[in-house]
Amino acid sequence: MERKTKPAAEKTRLSSVANAIRLIKTFSDEDYEIGISELGKRLKLPKSTVHRLASTLVDAGMLEQSEENGRYRLGLVVFELGSLVRRKMDFYSEAKPVLMALRDKTEESVHLAILVNSSIMYINSLETKKAIRMRLEVGVRKPAHSTAAGKAILAFQPADVLARVLAEGLNEHTANTIVDAEEFKRELALIRTRGFATADEENEVGVRSVAAPVRDHSGNVIAAISIAGPVQRLTKKVMAAFAPDVVSAAESVSTRLGYHPLRSARAHRLA
């Protein structure tokens, strides 16, 4: 069998990206400013190559060049990206005790999910201690339109986000999956009115779930907390009883993230 090789131009691009990453990772608290010659030695690259990489990174805001000594240091874009990662880590940390309390109170599996394109991705999952459980690995993705967590997030997204999901199609996973666009819009309107979402065997036969949206400091819905369980335990009556607990947990995490309804509403009016 003939082995396919990458074109020379593609190899060059990949090599440049790899070297750019290596260059950025050279900086540290001790070596926060480094000159071209020193960078070349550490990376074992020609000065001309390092200068070209550094210039590109300066244009992208990833590096800055000191006017005093000509050395390079990490730019504001790297700081902004680091802050974004830190906020995600803070989000996870702030949510965990709330999720644990919700699991202990309901004795059912509790999940934290975010929206990724037209799917949700679970970033935390705490299993029930009962024998029959809804096991979910962190990082698992499921369709947003057929899950309670997904619907809880989609109900509060901008119109273009919903339009993209509808354009991709509402695939049927069970007989209960909502596949009609207009019916799905009505479902989201109901979620906005009552403040929580449910999924009654819509993604998987034998499983029900209830979820509520989590907001960041500006009031944007960035995640959802959900409870999931087998239909034998999570009856419609039990699911309705758990809904206020899920909403309360989501509101608690939102508050921890700096969300205040009045302040957020005022900011949106000014915007």
Score class of each variant (00 low, 15 high):
119 S>E: 15
61 G>E: 06
249 A>P: 04
257 L>E: 12
63 L>T: 05
9 A>I: 08
8 A>W: 04
264 S>I: 00
189 A>D: 14
139 G>V: 03
198 T>L: 03
142 K>H: 05
146 S>T: 15
206 G>Y: 06
82 G>H: 09
89 M>T: 13
5 T>N: 04
173 H>R: 12
222 I>G: 07
91 F>H: 12
192 R>Y: 00
204 E>R: 10
228 A>C: 07
189 A>L: 11
72 Y>G: 08
71 R>W: 06
197 A>Y: 06
20 A>L: 01
195 G>S: 07
28 S>H: 02
185 K>W: 00
180 D>Q: 09
55 S>D: 11
76 L>A: 11
263 R>F: 06
268 H>R: 15
145 H>S: 04
73 R>K: 11
175 A>R: 11
9 A>Q: 09
240 A>G: 10
167 A>W: 02
68 E>Y: 04
177 T>H: 02
115 L>S: 08
197 A>G: 05
96 K>D: 10
209 S>T: 13
58 V>F: 05
255 T>C: 00
110 V>Y: 02
68 E>G: 01
160 D>K: 11
35 G>D: 14
227 I>R: 02
1 M>G: 14
144 A>R: 06
183 E>A: 15
50 V>C: 03
55 S>I: 01
216 D>Y: 02
215 R>W: 03
120 I>M: 13
147 T>L: 06
3 R>L: 13
31 D>R: 14
82 G>L: 05
243 A>G: 06
98 V>F: 00
170 L>N: 09
235 T>R: 05
27 F>A: 03
165 V>I: 09
28 S>E: 08
140 V>H: 09
100 M>F: 01
232 Q>F: 06
91 F>S: 03
257 L>C: 10
107 E>S: 12
63 L>W: 03
72 Y>C: 10
105 K>W: 00
195 G>W: 09
244 P>H: 08
195 G>D: 10
59 D>C: 00
179 V>Y: 04
163 A>Q: 14
8 A>V: 10
47 K>N: 07
260 H>E: 13
148 A>P: 07
42 R>S: 02
177 T>Y: 00
249 A>E: 05
130 K>R: 15
36 I>G: 13
137 E>T: 03
146 S>Q: 04
142 K>C: 09
24 I>A: 09
165 V>G: 04
96 K>F: 05
140 V>Q: 11
37 S>F: 04
102 L>Q: 08
264 S>G: 10
228 A>D: 08
91 F>Y: 10
61 G>N: 09
138 V>W: 07
55 S>N: 12
225 I>D: 07
187 E>V: 07
209 S>A: 15
166 L>A: 01
73 R>F: 09
122 Y>Q: 05
169 G>F: 07
79 F>Y: 01
88 K>Y: 03
203 N>S: 10
224 A>G: 08
152 A>F: 05
220 N>R: 09
15 S>K: 14
32 Y>S: 14
190 L>Y: 06
47 K>E: 11
50 V>S: 04
100 M>I: 11
9 A>P: 00
72 Y>S: 08
212 A>W: 02
15 S>G: 15
13 R>I: 13
195 G>F: 06
140 V>K: 14
164 R>H: 09
101 A>T: 01
260 H>M: 01
